[in-house]
Design a protein around this nucleic acid. Structure first.
Lengths: 243, 243
DNA sequence: CGGACCGGGCGTGTATACACAATTAGCGCG
DNA sequence: CGCGCTAATTGTGTATACACGCCCGGTCCG
């Protein structure tokens, strides 16, 4: 594996896991040593991470880990919802054939099987996450817009903005199963709208669907145990009174 | 000035102006020599340009200038329109005070003065472009969403996706003045909707406003003289029979 | 005469060395 | 004893040298 890729992946993991804390200054010589990489590929990784928005360039040079506040997370989820709304509308307006809709139905059924169980354990929520992401991806592909794909990829690269960012956190809630039912119903309506060519409806459903994440975020920001299950949670500033 | 910044700016200009042609392979040693920069800052600039989407990494290593087709441009404009729609809605829903709306009105008046003239020369279209961008920026700031700002900045970094990308091209059309009237009326309605807290209306207007760019794009793709006035036009693939 | 193997040049990826700026600590002077 | 200045250390930014892989061309052998 290329050293620059190793540096990029490791740094991303360290940032999201909290090994590198929010606002922490990133000293290249020290980091290079810890990563067992020379400064050249490390700097390449840093430039990429800046592009992803996980770190920011300090005015006096160098980088530091970025910290996000509640408003940023809400805004990011809103942007994702809006772009997924656009994707859903475009998918609907493309009037996809039954064959093109096949992967959507397959994933929908898989999600159904997960949700239909009586009790859900951690693995089930994990499976839900996987299929959920596949579902969102399938719609995006139906939209057939490369710029849209790129814009969404950018937003989702912020871990807490991804469609299934709060699924694991949500699993701690007493009514978690109920939430999945609701989300899955939205999935079903979304497919129905897309299949029927109802662009405006599909867009609205996709937007409202993203609001589930925002509601989960609001709950998680007040619940330490939930927040621990969210990737990138250590980057969230002032979310709880104490850590 | 830092060498990496010099490399970034110069490369961007070379790509947009067609000095480096679409699909052209970027050889680091040769480029470094032309830029009078060593390979280290050059590579940093290349990574940044890849993040901007102006170049792509070749699978066998190295980069090449990216080429865009008509569908991509349309999609990019659509994404911009959608995000600007979100910005407009958020601006409206924030119920900005009269003071907060001031810069919007000021810019609107400046645009009015440009459009109200009897005949417009190239400088007038230039002035229009400046105020137009300021106007779009002002709405974005009213929205008060950092993730949204970042997402829009990304899209707009593609030159032909920016709000005023086709203004200069449009100036060649016989009905160009008329188009500005229409665009300016949309600006006015947009401010009115935002001031009145009409979020849904503001969103729709902003979206439809972006369609002007898409319509100009369609015309420009069939008109060599118009296309010459669009920044980044050399990156557009198969737009005309011959160049 | 053709195919395969070997060598050289070229290009990317990485490491390291150097230049310059900033900050800090220590020392000297007031 | 305190303040200021200088010197050293540290970190970023840049240049260059090295390593490895790839492709191409030439040559030698079958």
């Amino acid at each position: 594996m290329k050293q620059s890729l190793k540096a990029l992946l490791t740094l991303r993991e360290w940032i999201l896991s909290g090994t590198l804390t929010a606002d922490e200054r990133l000293w290249e010589p020290a980091l290079a040593k810890r990563l067992e990489v020379s400064r050249t590929p490390l700097r390449e990784a840093l430039v990429r991470l800046e592009g992803e928005g996980l770190i920011i360039a300090a005015p006096e040079g160098g980088y530091q880990v970025r910290a996000f506040d509640r408003a940023y997370l809400q805004g990011a989820i809103e942007v994702r919802g809006t772009l997924e709304g656009l994707a859903a509308r475009r998918a609907a307006e493309a009037r996809p054939s039954a064959a093109a809709l096949k992967p959507l139905h397959v994933t929908l059924d898989a999600l159904d099987r997960v949700v239909a169980q009586h009790a859900l354990d951690s693995d089930d929520f994990d499976a839900y996450m996987t299929f959920n992401e596949r579902f969102h991806d399938a719609i995006l592909r139906l939209a057939g817009s490369q710029p849209l794909e790129e814009a969404l990829a950018r937003i989702v690269s912020l871990p807490f903005a991804s469609p299934s960012a709060f699924v694991m956190a949500q699993s701690l809630l007493p009514r978690s199963h109920e939430i999945l039912f609701i989300a899955q119903d939205q999935h079903r309506c979304l497919v129905e709208a897309i299949a029927a060519g109802q662009g405006a409806r599909a867009e609205q459903i996709a937007r409202e669907h993203a609001q589930i994440a925002r509601r989960n975020l609001d709950v998680a920001l007040g619940d330490h145990a939930m927040l621990e299950r969210v990737s990138g949670a250590p980057l969230i500033r002032a979310c709880l009174g104490a850590v």
